[in-house]
């Protein structure tokens, strides 16, 4: 795992890259989130300090967009599409199956061990493959079933 000091240096580099301009707050938050996997409060305060913005404003932007998370996300982010096509082809059953497997409670989206995060998204734009699931935005699984998603989870667990 990358050291906290590396991350902190990266944080400052990202801010510097955009010259701390208020208009660049969103790309800054995006890149910082890639480093930290989420936006910790103290990091947002640091960004506000460095950019001379009120912390409330940075908090407002970070909470407005669904892409930003203020709570830690898992190593594997599983996104289950719930667009119309995926919905009618049974994406909810996939959602239930994976949540049950990972033992997630009602409002919980990330497992205690920070390995998995499960999210719904409105449309991944791959309706021909419905229902669609992605892992970390890099792997796409089409025509999923509750059984197959459990196989994916099993595979990811084995990878550690």
């Amino acid at each position: 795992m990358e050291s906290p000091q590396r991350k902190f240096q990266k944080l400052q580099q990202i801010i510097d890259k955009y010259e701390g301009k208020a208009s660049q707050l969103i790309p800054i938050l995006q890149e910082v989130q890639e480093e930290y996997r989420y936006l910790p409060e103290e990091v947002l305060t640091y960004i506000a300090t460095a950019m001379k913005l009120p912390p409330a404003t940075v908090f407002g932007v970070a909470t407005f967009y669904a892409q930003f998370s203020l709570i830690p996300k898992g190593k594997y982010v599983i996104r289950i599409c719930d667009g119309t096509a995926c919905h009618v082809r049974g994406s909810e059953l996939i959602n239930q199956a994976v949540r049950k497997e990972l033992n997630l409670q009602d409002n919980q989206s990330t497992t205690e061990d920070l390995q998995f995060t499960v999210e719904r998204v409105s449309c991944l734009g791959a309706c021909g493959l419905a229902p669609v699931v992605t892992v970390n935005d890099t792997e796409v699984y089409g025509q999923m079933t509750p059984e197959e998603i459990l196989a994916v989870v099993k595979k990811l667990r084995e990878e550690g």
Binding site: T45, P55, A56, F59, G60, T63, F64, L70
Partner: peptide, 16 residues
């Protein structure tokens, strides 16, 4: 103060 969260969840809030 600033607006935080979105849509029906919108609130006027302090930082964090």
């Amino acid at each position: 103060w600033d607006f935080a969260f979105r849509g029906s969840e919108t609130q006027v809030s302090t930082a964090f």
